[in-house]
Simulated scan of single mutants.
Amino acid sequence: MKVCQVMGGSDDGGLETHFMDLANGLAALGDEVVAIGHPRYRDGFDATVHFAPLNLARNRRDPFLRRTLRRLIEANAPAIVHAQGGKAADLIAAIRPSARVVGTIHNKKSNLTSYLGFDAVIGVSRGVVADLRHDNKHVVYNGVHPPSSSLSAAQLRQRFAIPDDEKLTLAIGRLVPAKAFHRLVEIWDDTMGRLLIVGEGPERRRLEPLAEGKPVILAGFQPDARSMMTGADLMVFASEREGFSYAMVEALQARLPIVSTPVPGAAELLPPTHLASAGNLKPAIKECLADPDAARVRMDRLFQWAAQTLTVDKMVEATRDVYLGITR
């Protein structure tokens, strides 16, 4: 099967990771894969993937961009065109390629019109496709590769000069408004141990004065952020909007308890006592930190399920099943 993956992003988030992992995984199964995306992603693909660089970060209504994309797709003559994310979906809906079309929704969207004419639609969680009226919609959760390394509790605390007996909570992600890290900094106090925020972004300017004098560390970008999960007591999300967080998947794989606002993904997986509205995050976090072992017991079945289900291989296989369903 020849598949053309199209992605309009230019960041380093979950959408971009999904785009590269899926293309590489399909190629590993023997499919012929063409990946169209920003030139900066060239090195993220295996040699078996044909990468066609095209800067889709330009205005999605740009007629030259639309013509270029259409010509590139038609020149490769795929059986399937797969639009990853809202911008790619808008472009593909506008140019109407002759191939079968699949779109993946990666976040909660108010306008889903572009997906209505597609042959199939995939959501990375039930929440992101709940409002979509489409006869052929599916849920395929994001999957991750096995971790390459891990840190012990002692190693993690030593890196950031945290006492061995102090509880340590991780919050990982880009410092952008939708992640609402300011909520965590505002509620954090000495009774909750240390909060380690890993990530970089424009919200740092807002967070730095809020964190001053509090047991909060703004660690910035850490290339081994995932390895830190095995050394922490808790992972926390205060997000206002998510699709299906990669950091959540990685925490589940690391058997790290999670407390989150009820955003898509978290709302359909986490135990009720591990979900809290923005105003109730503090008591939910304190309950888990009071007995991290009990929190792990509550989440044990979810940890086991995640280890078997939230993998790149399962994500690729489930996506390929959607393709087969519209090409038979």
Results as ranks from 00 to 15, higher is better:
Gly127Arg: 03
Arg241Asp: 03
Val6Pro: 12
Val49Phe: 05
Val144Asn: 02
Ile92Met: 08
Ala89Met: 10
Asp11Phe: 09
Cys288Met: 15
Val121Ala: 12
Ala120Val: 06
Ala23Asp: 08
Cys4Ile: 02
Val6Phe: 06
Asp11Arg: 14
Val236Arg: 08
Ser277Gln: 11
Lys109Thr: 03
Gln304Ala: 14
Glu186Thr: 09
Ala75Asp: 11
Ile122Glu: 07
Leu184Met: 13
Ile73Phe: 06
Pro271Cys: 02
Arg100Tyr: 01
Gly37Leu: 09
Leu54Arg: 10
Glu74Ser: 10
Phe160Arg: 15
Ala290Gly: 11
Arg42Gly: 00
Tyr141Asp: 04
Tyr141Ala: 09
Thr17Gly: 04
Thr230Asn: 15
Val49Tyr: 11
Gly9Tyr: 06
Ala295Cys: 11
Ser114Trp: 08
Ala307Lys: 05
Gly37Val: 09
Leu170Tyr: 08
Val249Met: 10
Glu74Phe: 03
Arg183Ser: 07
Val33Leu: 09
Arg96Gln: 09
Asp190Gly: 02
Asp164Pro: 08
Asp224Gly: 11
Lys108Thr: 05
Pro202Cys: 12
Trp188Gln: 03
Arg126Asn: 12
Val33Cys: 10
Asn107Cys: 14
Pro163Gln: 09
Ala232Asn: 10
Thr169Trp: 03
Asp21Gly: 00
Val81His: 12
Gly231Ala: 09
Asp293Ser: 15
Thr113Ile: 02
Ala77Lys: 06
Val129Ser: 01
Gly123Gln: 05
Arg66Met: 15
Asn107Ile: 14
Ile95Lys: 01
Arg296Trp: 13
Tyr115Glu: 00
Pro215Met: 10
Asp189Met: 04
Gly37Cys: 04
Asp291Trp: 14
Ala251Glu: 10
Asp189Ser: 13
Pro209Ile: 01
Val121Thr: 00
Ala88Cys: 09
His138Val: 01
Leu54Tyr: 02
Ser114Gln: 07
Ser245Cys: 12
Ile217Pro: 02
Val140Asn: 11
Ala93Trp: 01
Ser149Asp: 14
Pro283Thr: 09
Ile122Gly: 06
Met7Gln: 06
Leu116Gln: 13
Gln304Ser: 04
Thr104Trp: 02
Ala47Lys: 07
Pro257Gly: 03
Arg301Lys: 13
Glu212Gln: 13
Phe181Thr: 08
Val216Leu: 03
Ala295Tyr: 14
Asp11Cys: 07
Ile172His: 01
Asp321Tyr: 03
Leu324Ser: 15
Ala290Glu: 08
Asp12Gln: 11
Asp131Gln: 11
Val101Phe: 05
Ala232Val: 12
Leu289Trp: 08
Ala27Ser: 04
Asp46Thr: 15
Tyr41Gly: 12
Glu242Val: 07
Phe221Ala: 13
Ser10Met: 15
Arg328Tyr: 08
Pro163Trp: 03
Met299Asn: 12
Ala153Gly: 15
Asp135Tyr: 01
Ser98Trp: 04
Ser114Val: 05
Gln158Asp: 14
Ile162Lys: 06
Glu186Gln: 14
Gly85Glu: 06
Ala153Lys: 06
Leu281Asp: 01
Phe160Ala: 09
Leu175Glu: 04
Ser149Gln: 15
Glu203Gly: 06
Lys214Pro: 07
Thr327Gly: 04
Arg70Thr: 00
Ser260Glu: 14
Pro78Leu: 15
Ile36Tyr: 15
Asp164Cys: 02
Tyr41Gln: 10
His138Met: 12
